[in-house]
Nucleic acid binder design. Structure first.
Lengths: 151, 151
DNA sequence: CCTTTATATTTTGATTATCAAAATATTTGT
DNA sequence: ACAAATATTTTGATAATCAAAATATAAAGG
């Protein structure tokens, strides 16, 4: 009974660690080796479509705006982001991806999907469904129990 | 077809982020709020049973020995670890948990298991099995494809 | 319309985690 | 006993982070 919990916990921890390693490694090898994982996450948070304000992006990333300011400075210097001020409210700073930023976004997204695809290759349809259902449930529970269903 | 991959990928990413948040939060609240996640991981790597050398522990954690030296210094100051030199080979440094370190280890372990337990409460036996099988497979694949089955 | 208050962001000063390379200490091989 | 190998620590640097202070702009109230 408890045995299975221990096993599932162990798997989760290992998957967690592996994903981290793989992601780090794949970035180091790839076209955008001048980006860290954190920087890729920043690029992801800005997103392909239009611009985000500093508040929105820092909220989404769960970091302070001060931290984001520095991250954005560096990503602008590297050519992945652009900064502009809102015309309707000059306090607001909008950040958006450059073409290079969009390319990095898409390539990272593709890496993720390819990884999942490779992993699922020999899953039966039933297994696929089971994993998806279990993950959805896991995800929902994590949010409900520990993070308070909203946000 | 691709739709399911996107979905599974999204779930994995969300679970990953949530687990991180939850772990951070639970440490901040708990008995050992003077420990960071990184420090908890160091304590985990040393383990309950006997001592580990600096090489062994740094290998297990995937960090350099220089980084570990500093981490160990701080954990000794905080009372979680002890350092001693091997008698058979005076170059080797052994590190082990103090009682306080062991308590931290056990409490963190319990937190993990409780989390999994809470999540699995309303899983049917079939769903449990499905998740376990899928996770094993996922785990194995991650290691095979990206990390080279050994290590 | 000024003045205060609120909001959005950046700057500053500090800390933690990390690495690579140099330095130190000890053992092993010849 | 000397040179080479091994285990660890020290040093010098960088990245990511936060909280609090500073700056700039907008909104609200008399």
């Amino acid at each position: 009974m408890n045995e299975k919990l221990v096993e599932i916990n162990k798997m989760l921890v290992e998957v967690y660690d592996d994903v981290n390693l793989i992601e780090e490694y794949s970035i180091k090898q790839g076209t955008f080796s001048d980006l860290s994982i954190t920087e890729i996450h920043t690029i992801e948070a800005i997103g392909l479509y239009g611009a985000k304000t500093m508040s929105e992006a820092s909220m989404e990333l769960g970091i302070t705006m001060g931290t984001l300011t520095i991250a954005v400075d560096k990503l602008i210097k590297k050519g992945y982001l652009e900064r502009s001020r809102s015309n309707s409210d000059r306090r607001i700073v909008n950040v958006n991806l450059t073409n290079r930023g969009k390319l990095a976004y898409r390539i990272h997204e593709k890496f993720h999907l390819d990884m999942v695809k490779a992993i699922m290759l020999d899953f039966t349809l039933q297994e696929e469904e089971a994993l998806l259902r279990a993950l959805s449930k896991l995800n929902k529970h994590l949010k409900d129990i520990y993070l308070g269903s909203d946000r």
